[in-house]
Design a protein around this nucleic acid. Structure first.
Lengths: 222, 222
DNA sequence: TACCTCATTTTTGCATTCAAAAAACGGGCA
DNA sequence: TGCCCGTTTTTTGAATGCAAAAATGAGGTA
């Protein structure tokens, strides 16, 4: 197994909660599970630690990182900055095909909202946001965006929404699409920032902001 | 030597050009130089590779990353987004002490500009930008900012400036300070974006954007 | 000379090993 | 019983060893 594969496999386990936040990371077992020795596993752990998904305690092993309310706030703030930037750049660089894709995803999203299908709604939603970042055509931005959003994905795309919030979000998305069509970079940036600010409010309100991803089992001794 | 120390030591070598961009990284020699074995060195290399400072070629070792003109553009763009965000947040959160520090640094910078001391000017300049990020009080942002800026630091803080550009930069900095004093977040964000956009133009104009940090020796076989 | 081939050396990536640190256990004592 | 201290076991972090891959270089051929 390649180094990058080990990293992404582990990242997946951490993000999916397969290794719950705060839990001790059992090197031995993981080695057995992934069929690798400790050396490459530990290399991957250091990489993930640098990315904030794992915390290394000197001489005491590593644990899956646990997000605090502050972390969630900070991540959402950075996400706002990155999406706003992506929006600005996307307006300059987006192709007609990419725009068509986003329009289609938007239409599908509206449909799912009408039917009350939150899961499918979120899927389209995410497609749109990711497409905007892709349209910005900046690999550095893409990597940072992926790193930041992956850590708040569950909070962002699992939080339930009350009807008013949901329709507000939809109106914001109308604005996003319009701004894109008009290639109005600063307008789009503005809407995206507000959109994410509102999302953070929802997430916070839903109680995700406290130990966000730590919901469910919590094997850590603080 | 601690893991983090190895990483930051190596990062320093790469950023300072002690290991020139594109150069092969000699594991053996570095182990000897740092007095460590290959295992911790390789762990550090993977971390730096994830950060973009090193490229790993499977079965062919690692090399110091070489920035292309596109990389420089992309990094500056992301930097714009991050500084704009930092400005917004700083206006909400900056303390009077922090504001005083920035004012002092600004005054010193003006003095150095009058005397034509570019090095000292840049030192104060960097202090100001970093202080704004610190005032934003968002560790996630700080880490990303450090990662992005460290990679373009040499381009940013070494490029010579023609007098008109220099005085424009200074006027922009007056605007930055004023916006901070007025706690005008969006105004500050706007100025910072323009400031960095202009900086990128200077850097590009100075030819830094092509193999930016590859100036000097270039031991790589492309 | 230019180029191809194949043996030799070096380097890489990973498994294993080893010393030191931390945790777990258990006996002694109040 | 509850707690402290010394011992054993486990786990961690790093060095070493080893097989496979790549680079090097010498010799042969056109």
């Amino acid at each position: 197994m390649l180094h990058e594969e080990v990293v992404s496999r582990l990242r997946g386990m951490l993000l999916e909660g397969e290794i719950p936040p705060g839990a001790r990371i059992p090197e031995r077992e993981l080695c057995a599970a992934l069929q690798i020795s400790r050396t490459p596993l530990r290399e991957a752990l250091k990489v993930l630690a640098a990315d904030g998904l794992v915390v290394l305690l000197p001489n005491r092993g590593s644990r899956a990182a646990k997000l605090t309310g502050h972390d969630v706030r900070n991540l959402f703030e950075v996400c706002q900055g990155l999406e706003a930037l992506a929006g600005e750049l996307a307006c300059k660089r987006i192709s007609d095909e990419q725009l068509a894709e986003i329009s289609a995803a938007h239409a599908a999203m509206v449909k799912h909202q009408r039917r009350g299908d939150l899961t499918q709604y979120y899927r389209c939603n995410r497609t749109i946001h990711e497409a905007i970042v892709r349209a910005a055509d900046n690999p550095i931005l893409s990597v940072l965006y992926e790193s930041v959003t992956s850590r708040i994905r569950r909070a962002r795309y699992v939080t339930p929404m009350v009807p008013e919030r949901w329709s507000l979000a939809l109106r914001e998305h109308e604005g996003i699409l319009n701004a894109l069509l008009r290639r109005d970079g600063s307008g789009l940036a503005h809407i995206l920032r507000a959109h994410l600010r509102h999302k953070l409010e929802e997430v916070t309100h839903a109680g995700f902001a406290e130990d966000s991803e730590a919901m469910g089992s919590d094997n850590a001794k603080s």
